[in-house]
Design a protein around this nucleic acid. Structure first.
Length: 478
DNA sequence: TTTTGAGTTGTTCGA
DNA sequence: GTCGAACAACTCAAA
């Protein structure tokens, strides 16, 4: 009897355009599909709470679609190497296939697996999570890139992504019984309290949901992306990030879907595709600088005089800073597990520059609360705003939360959606309620300091303080 | 090796 | 109200 093949599902929770799965099917071996919830405590960046919510639903969905192809998703938690070792022994498998991941922990794990099991099983690793392998994009002097634009050009000069490959029509599943745990026993969903209650109003985790979101984006927003992407009050972005993170859709499917679209009348699709390359750039940086999530890329920033201010951090997390655009963003994050990218920059700038709180603390909060929490993108984003990243914003660029609000949420609709206590405030004051005359506040039924907080810092003072801190850093590291 | 041009996303101030 | 300049040099990538 033919020995089975273990397909280890990771961040590739899809059947379409999945080179690993297709290769597994083509091998002709009976397939054991397994997902392992890693419980190795040496990994600092295990899935956060919101990601675990998503993972639960995505696995449920994957399990369902696999069963339609005659297969079954085996579930185990524990240390990945222990689980695999046990599974190989239990089933006498002679092959192990998986998709490559790029996080420092994940690639070390791949090395360990190779060392541990390559004597017993044939190990094959496939790509598919990125359009371009991080090592394949190099400068003229064979170095990794540190600046986005030349990286982008270099990507474009390589061959364009190929057509996605179809899902297998049938999976030759391993027939013998294999032990599995129950998803419900993993406690991935929050219970007391169930703060993710509203997530399902906004998201459909899984491959089908991913394709619905992509089609919606191509039909309605992609062609106006360069304008609408900055508007948190409308659906102008793709909202694909969590789907891409879990590999429910491949970047190649997105790329080709947009390239082939007949709807890109205003924009060519380029402005959005450029964002997909930002994702590649983040992975490029993370692969070559594994410290990226923890340490400033520009090392002199480790001497920056950050403040320890747990009280302010807490107010920021809860959306109680008194700056409506900041608070709206933080509450959107809490309620939906996601925040509009423009607003991510605004709240990050506020935490880092107005409150002088280390960017790592914002990064950690995002890590725990975002359904799209992604090590490469999250750390690159935070370092960029902090000014210590690759190709980062210049130090004097401090976002003004009032101006940003007025510019990108001109009617105040975004603020009113997430801060109901400001619902009746006229748009003139919606981004700066402290400037609102008493009678207008009264008729809007708002008591500042009771219904909605006074600003916890005065922005122009905070801006000066931040600029001074940067000047000091320059002075001591010169 | 040296030179040159460029670098995601902003704000403020003064004419 | 609008517009251009200043903010500060520095590092990267390619010619």
């Amino acid at each position: 009897m033919q020995k089975p093949l273990i397909y280890w599902f990771r961040q590739d929770l899809r059947l379409h355009d999945n080179p690993t799965l297709s290769a597994a099917v083509e091998s002709g071996k009976p397939i054991i599909a397994v997902y392992i919830l890693n419980e190795d405590t040496s990994n600092k960046w295990t899935e956060g709470s919101a990601s675990r919510w998503w993972l639960h639903h995505s696995l449920q969905e994957l399990s369902h679609t696999l069963s339609q192809l005659g297969s079954r998703l085996i579930l185990h938690k524990g240390k990945v190497t222990d689980v695999l070792s046990q599974l190989i022994e239990e089933t006498d498998a002679d092959a192990l296939y998986f998709s490559r991941q790029y996080e420092p922990y994940a690639s070390q794990l791949e090395d360990r697996i190779n060392k541990l099991f390559s004597d017993q099983v044939e190990i094959k690793r496939f790509k598919g999570y990125l359009l371009y392998e991080p090592e394949s994009i190099r400068t003229g002097s064979n170095q990794p890139y540190k600046v986005f634009t030349p990286f982008y050009k270099s990507c474009l000069s390589h061959s364009q992504p190929l057509q996605p490959i179809p899902a297998p029509e049938k999976i030759n599943a391993y027939k013998n019984k294999v032990k599995s745990e129950l998803l419900s026993q993993w406690d991935l969903l929050p219970t007391k309290p169930n703060w993710a209650m509203q997530f399902s109003d906004y998201w459909i985790p899984g491959e089908n949901g991913a394709h619905q979101v992509l089609n919606e984006f191509i039909l309605h927003a992609c062609s106006k992306y360069s304008v609408l992407r900055n508007r948190p009050d409308v659906t102008g972005t793709s909202r694909l990030s969590p789907h891409l993170h879990f590999g429910e859709i491949s970047p190649r499917q997105v790329w080709v879907g947009i390239k082939n679209s007949q709807h890109n009348i205003i924009d060519s699709g380029e402005p959005y595709l450029r964002q997909l390359i930002w994702r590649e750039f983040s992975y490029h940086l993370l692969t070559h600088w594994p410290d990226f999530p923890d340490k400033p890329f520009r090392s002199e920033f480790s001497q920056f005089s950050w403040k320890k201010d747990n009280k302010a951090l807490h107010l920021w997390q809860k959306g109680q800073t008194g700056y409506p655009i900041v608070d709206a963003g933080m509450r959107e994050l809490w309620k939906t597990g996601w925040m509009h990218n423009r607003v991510r920059m605004i709240v990050a700038s506020f935490l880092i520059k107005d409150l002088l709180i280390p960017w790592q603390q914002g990064e950690e909060w995002f890590w725990d609360t975002l359904v799209d929490a992604n090590l490469a993108n999250n750390s690159a984003g935070w370092q960029w705003v902090a000014g210590c990243g690759a190709d980062a914003a210049p130090y004097f660029r401090v976002f003004n939360p009032v101006l940003q609000g007025e510019k990108f949420d001109p009617q105040g609709d975004y603020v009113r959606t997430w801060i109901p206590e400001l619902k009746k405030l006229p748009k003139k004051y919606i981004h700066s309620p402290w400037q609102c005359p008493a009678d207008v506040l009264a008729s809007a039924q708002i008591k500042l300091g009771e219904d909605y907080p006074h600003p916890i810092v005065e922005h122009s003072e905070a801006r000066d303080r931040a600029l001074n801190a940067y000047h000091e850093l320059k002075a001591i590291t010169a």
